[in-house]
């Protein structure tokens, strides 16, 4: 379980408060108006944005000062999730070892992951030779080999068309179901929430609300959320 205790983030004029617990095996959608701090919240969980006060606990251990690479989570950004000069296989391999000195077993794991996302035939290609959807699949293959307990998505599929985005979300849902990881994803689209989220974290007016069950919340939104959903 990931606990966010009385956390406060302050960046210039902007501030965000959060206090919540995120459970394993659950899928959380983070929604809210533009500029409310959805990406900042994920950045703070991941260690890219410092906390002004409060702390983050993983299984009871304080990880507030850990580097992003040491935290039990893996994040996909809006863009630049793959190194363009490395092959798909190397990109995925970096998830296992930063120096890319992979053992035979690790190589096999990389190839398994590529097979799982349907890219077995593309392992020697560079990202530029792949379509947008295939690039997303390659990034997901790396998430798979990293096998961290928390997967954070900061709208990595925003540039894809609706059908492709749904396909990717379904794939993500399958993958986290297989690994038992918690999924925390930023989204703008209410239909994404209904599609895969169990819980919703609503971010607005300087606060990230504690998660609430998705279906009930979307059917009967409080005033602030209703104003956002329109």
């Amino acid at each position: 379980m990931l606990r966010v205790e009385q956390a406060k983030i302050a960046l210039g004029d902007f501030s965000l408060a959060a206090d919540m617990a995120l459970e394993q095996g659950q899928r959380y959608a983070v929604i809210g108006p533009s500029g409310a701090g959805k990406s900042t919240l994920l950045g703070a969980l991941c260690g890219f944005v410092p906390l002004q006060s409060g702390r983050i606990l993983w299984q009871g251990r304080d990880i507030s000062q850990d580097n992003p690479g040491q935290r039990p989570m893996t994040m996909l950004f809006q863009d630049n999730n793959l190194f363009p000069h490395l092959t798909v296989q190397q990109n995925v391999g970096l998830g296992l070892r930063p120096d890319l000195r992979l053992s035979g077993a690790e190589q096999a794991k990389v190839l398994d992951a590529l097979r799982r996302v349907g890219l077995a035939d593309h392992s020697a290609k560079r990202p530029a030779a792949l379509s947008g959807g295939q690039q997303s699949r390659a990034a997901l293959a790396r998430v798979l080999v990293q096998a961290r307990p928390l997967v954070l998505l900061d709208e990595p599929f925003a540039a894809l068309g609706p059908a492709l985005r749904n396909e990717m979300l379904d794939l993500v849902a399958e993958l986290v179901a297989e690994t038992g990881a918690a999924l925390i994803m930023v989204t703008h689209a209410p239909e994404d929430v209904r599609r895969i989220a169990d819980q919703v974290v609503f971010v607005a007016e300087g606060r990230a609300e504690a998660p609430q069950p998705a279906a009930a919340l979307m059917d009967n939104p409080p005033p602030a959320l209703r104003a956002y959903l329109g």
Partner: peptide, 18 residues
């Protein structure tokens, strides 16, 4: 690619190399 590198734990020689 700084954030991606950091999140993958790339630093030192591997960061330069890859």
């Amino acid at each position: 690619f700084g954030r991606l590198s950091v999140s993958l734990g790339l630093q030192g020689w591997p960061l330069w190399r890859w």
